[in-house]
Design a protein around this nucleic acid. Structure first.
Lengths: 204, 204
DNA sequence: ACGCTGTGTTCCCTATAGGAAACTTTTTTC
DNA sequence: GAAAAAAGTTTCCTATAGGGAACACAGCGT
């Protein structure tokens, strides 16, 4: 079966698909070798046939989603890796530049967000600069939570980062923190002026 | 979370069958509705059959990895979502803080890298600050390449970013760029002093 | 040389994935 | 409310995925 009928042509923006095959098998074999497993062992652990695994690694078959899932668990392959490589990186061959202050703005009561890359819609990380308005702290309660990981770098100002299960953390320019954004988190500015923070967020 | 439903069966090699069967179809249908697509439209866009899609959504089939991949692209489903169980953020419930200048250092001829998070080893993004030593530009040739995506934010100084297939880009403090790091890239400082850059790199 | 063991590949067969088209259900339109 | 159109399902058939078992091919002792 050809993944793409040769004459489907142009509806979509582009014919994103295509050049997989090769890679998937190669990755799985590498991962298996990495863990020092034989076909037999890996296949058994993943509850699939030895021959099936062999064929997959040699790209002689188009395995089912289910099979691949089991393999990924056994081989502890990072899911996104598999996908991104066997399909392309979400931003293949592209780049998007944003001048200071020219990002797309979104405002909420506490924050002012400036998206640092609006063009590449299928990118995986989301970088933005937030201006955290100075305000008086009383009790911090409204956690933000979203499945994934987040990196935060203080550009200017002073602020306190609240992270569920952790002690509040006072941060100044140049300080940074990396955390599971599934934990409740949020921050307040404690300097005279607003604090400016660079965030990079990764879903999943 | 649970790769295998606790009751269902013993961990018998077989049987692992349809743990999340339910979910997969449901998720895909939801995603399609979300985008306001009909079976016909979605199927065509993903280059699969209308009936196939219907069966997948109703969990009447065990689709191939290939098919799922196409659907994910079309429906812009975040990969990890589909693998609810195995996904789990690499840094669950953790956080790591780094004071200005206290990151772990690595030096090369052109760069001086400061890792901004050395504790969380299984994190997915890698944040670091690089000091790019001022040097005279002649011809730029030694591309850096690594499968994945990268976000770069200029903290201070002036530099020129070279990106394969693109024109060189002059950047100053506060400017940022997001690109496929699989493309060759690299930069040189063009200011008097060294340039300081914050990088966040995502493998895959 | 000879088995012997452990690794990967190939062959063969059955169950089934995937697509085209027939069919059914829902929605729209007159 | 009936006809037409659109959305979704089921049927049917062919190509093939997946697993068991036979096969190939190393090493490695003896």
């Amino acid at each position: 079966m050809e993944p793409i009928p040769s004459e489907e042509t142009g509806l979509g923006p582009e014919a994103v698909e295509a050049p997989d095959g090769e890679i998937l098998g190669k990755m799985i074999r590498e991962a298996r070798k990495e863990k020092g497993l034989t076909l037999e062992e890996a296949a058994k652990a993943a509850a699939i046939g030895r021959s099936t695994l062999s064929k997959i690694e040699n790209n002689q078959t188009r395995p089912s989603f289910e099979i691949i899932r089991r393999l990924m668990q056994t081989l502890e392959l990072e899911t996104p890796q598999l996908f991104v490589q066997s399909s392309q990186s979400g931003v293949t061959g592209r780049r998007d530049f944003t001048r200071t202050g020219e990002g797309e703005h979104k405002e909420t009561s506490t924050y002012d967000h400036e998206l640092l890359c609006s063009e590449l819609t299928s990118k995986r990380m989301v970088p933005y600069i937030s201006t955290i308005k100075a305000r008086d702290v009383t009790e911090f309660d409204n956690w933000v939570r979203h499945q994934g990981e987040e990196f935060m770098f203080v550009l200017s100002g002073e602020l306190i980062l609240y992270t569920e299960h952790y002690r509040p953390l006072r941060m100044g320019g140049g300080d940074s923190v990396y955390y599971d954004s599934g934990m409740g988190h949020g921050c307040v500015s404690v300097s005279e002026e607003d604090a400016r923070v660079l965030w990079v967020s990764l879903e999943g």
